[in-house]
Design a protein around this nucleic acid. Structure first.
Length: 569
RNA sequence: UGUCCUGUGGUGUAACUGGCAACACGUCUGACUCUGGAUCAGAAGAGUCCAGGUUCGAGCCCUGGCAGGACAACCA
């Protein structure tokens, strides 16, 4: 193990194997599926991608990479009433951002509408599909329940000619929505509900985002997915657990295509659940629509675009995805694992900078009024190649309010009256006076510095217990900082029967600090640039920034053992 | 009173054709440190849903239970 790390370097986290890899290995060994591997990522363009999709993307594209195969991007756009090009665009952007590419293999289920329609006609001609004139409620009732078999539709035994005629009329738009459907003739008595003469085409007089008004009948998911896989030469069609019961229908339909012995294989895995958030598109859409968050890219959202804006990196998401593994066990992953993954990546890569988000003015009384100097600071102690920078120092500074306590408790070893601490990369300072306003609120500290400790070390070998970050008041860049906390206070907000998930929303999930001071280095940063504000956490520049007022998002805090100690009481 | 799937530390994942249950996160110590970060060293924590059985030996095999999830959209 140790050798492995040495050999590969620790930037390369060893890819874990999973049960799907094992099944592919077996298929390859047995010579099934032409000894090749071809997967696909098939989102419906009806919302933005979230971290759960990222798991699927990493899995599918990851398998292609591992086996020297291919992975397609395919939009499952068979329901025009919910889909939109806005979503298509965002999905492509997100997949690319994660670092995956489908080359020229971009497909849409709607590419196959014509073929699918032909196939439906084939089934009718073979006596394997029929038009049902009953309404949704009646059909549903006849379908039975999981424990009771279904009844046969009175329209099940229409002649082929009649079915051909009716389906043609459906296609031509002669019927109203909901008045007729095309059903596959399978078996109403089977225990699997999906096999009880499933509906394969329905009338929808909706404009499709790609085919416009060309069609007024659209195939159902079950009637499109397996066939699309088949036509694209997909060998392993990986989807989530809830499609397990669809597999017999998937196989049945592909069997009807019977051109050769090649057969795509559906394999199901457990979708990702994360603590303190919700992951269904419906719920995320609700949060957006009802204004509980500021859009799909709100940094509190588990969407890819939200995580990106929050400051997550593709690497951190991929490492996270690899760490959680792939199984058929429905579980709940602790967000702390996600947070660990960003910290791990940003620790190695993020530019260090000093920033004070809760400012307290400090005056160095023995430092000349008009003097200022430049002090050298390390850009990233984890990566010396990132070099050093100069940080301006002067008589008036800001430090973090939390770094001062007038009456320090045990184990608090930051600044307090009479105590000496180090200002990072600068000097040792000692607090002499505490200035307060009429309410007794501390407004300013008067300190003295030791000129001999320049750079942060005292020639007499004197030690201090704490090192504080600081910013020179007159050089500081004033900016807004947004702090984020979990969107929900409950580990599983969607997991309560009879209680709406929104009941568990955390009212303090967003905290805006309008007056923060950052060292001048951040001046030229671009949106999404990552920084570590020393001792505070990782932050990145938000799109909302203007040249006059930069806005930073806190991605995640640094691990903080003092905060833990403090909370112990 | 159906079919299918799943049960391994707090969480997630491992354990080759049976061989002392391993790793990561989290938690807790300690060392080091110009970030109470990082790093390093260490600890606690499961006897693998239950009960039988086969075996020298079972998380892995057999039998029977139990628990949880999915399935009754003209959603995907």
């Amino acid at each position: 193990m140790a050798e492995n790390n040495m050999a590969e370097g620790n930037s390369e986290i060893k890819k874990k194997s999973n049960f799907i890899h094992a099944q592919i290995d077996e298929d390859l060994k047995n010579g099934k599926n032409r000894k090749r591997v071809h997967t696909r990522f098939p989102p419906e363009p009806n919302g933005y991608l979230h971290i759960g999709h990222a798991k699927s993307i990493c899995l599918n594209f990851g398998i292609a990479e591992k086996y020297g195969g291919k992975c397609n991007l395919r939009f499952d756009d068979t329901n025009p009433s919910k889909e939109d090009t806005e979503y298509v665009d965002s999905i492509m952007e997100d997949v690319h951002w994660l670092g995956f590419d489908w080359d020229d293999r971009l497909f849409y289920a709607s590419d196959y509408f014509e073929k699918l329609h032909q196939f439906a006609i084939q089934l009718i001609k073979e006596g394997k599909a029929y038009v049902d004139d009953q309404d949704a409620e009646t059909i549903s009732k006849q379908k039975g329940t999981p424990t009771r078999p279904g009844e046969i539709s009175p329209f099940r035994n229409r002649t082929i000619e009649e079915n051909m005629q009716l389906f043609a009329q459906m296609t031509a738009g002669e019927f109203d929505e909901g008045s007729h459907v095309l059903r596959a003739k399978v078996d109403m008595a089977l225990p699997n509900m999906h096999m009880r003469d499933p509906i394969i085409y329905r009338i929808m007089k909706a404009r499709h985002h790609r085919t416009g008004d060309k069609w007024c009948v659209y195939p159902m998911y079950d009637f499109a997915h397996g066939q699309s896989d088949y036509w694209e030469g997909i060998t392993h069609s990986i989807c989530t657990l809830e499609f397990e019961v669809h597999r017999p229908l998937y196989d049945w339909l592909v069997d009807q295509l019977k051109v050769d012995d090649y057969r795509p294989r559906q394999i199901e895995f457990a979708r990702l659940n994360l603590t303190y958030t919700v992951m269904s598109k419906r719920k995320l859409l609700e949060l957006v629509k009802d204004g509980h968050v500021n859009g799909w890219d709100d940094p509190r959202m588990p969407t890819i675009t939200g995580l990106r804006r929050r400051g997550y990196t593709p690497e951190s998401i991929k490492n996270f995805s690899d760490r959680i593994g792939v199984t058929k066990v429905d579980g709940m992953i602790d967000v702390s694992l996600l947070e660990y993954s960003v910290r791990e990546h940003l620790n190695k890569t993020a530019q260090r900078v000093m920033g004070v988000i809760n400012p307290l003015k400090v005056v160095i009384t023995n430092y000349p009024e008009d003097k200022s100097e430049e002090l050298e600071a390390i850009n990233n102690p984890e990566d010396t190649e990132m070099g050093v920078r100069q940080v301006p120092f002067s008589r008036e500074l800001y430090i973090e309010r939390d770094d001062f306590m007038e009456e320090p408790p045990r184990k608090f070893f930051r600044l307090s009256p009479g105590r000496e601490v180090r200002l990072r990369y600068a000097y040792f300072v000692t607090c002499n006076d505490v200035i307060k306003d009429e309410n007794g609120e501390v407004t300013e500290l008067h300190c003295t510095y030791d000129p001999a400790s320049k750079g942060g070390n005292s020639p007499d070998g004197r030690k201090v217990k704490a090192t504080l970050h600081w910013v020179s008041a007159k050089h500081a860049i004033k900016s807004e900082v947004r702090l984020y906390d979990r969107l929900f206070n409950d580990e599983d907000p969607a997991g309560h029967k009879d209680v709406d998930f929104k009941e568990f929303m955390n009212p303090e999930s967003l905290k805006v600090l309008p007056e923060c001071y950052l060292e001048p280095f951040v001046k030229d940063s671009k949106p999404l640039d990552h920084f570590q504000f020393e001792r505070l956490g990782y932050f990145n520049l938000d799109y909302d920034s203007t040249p006059e007022k930069p806005v930073f998002n806190r991605t995640v805090q640094l691990r903080d053992s003092w905060a833990k100690e403090k909370n112990k009481g």
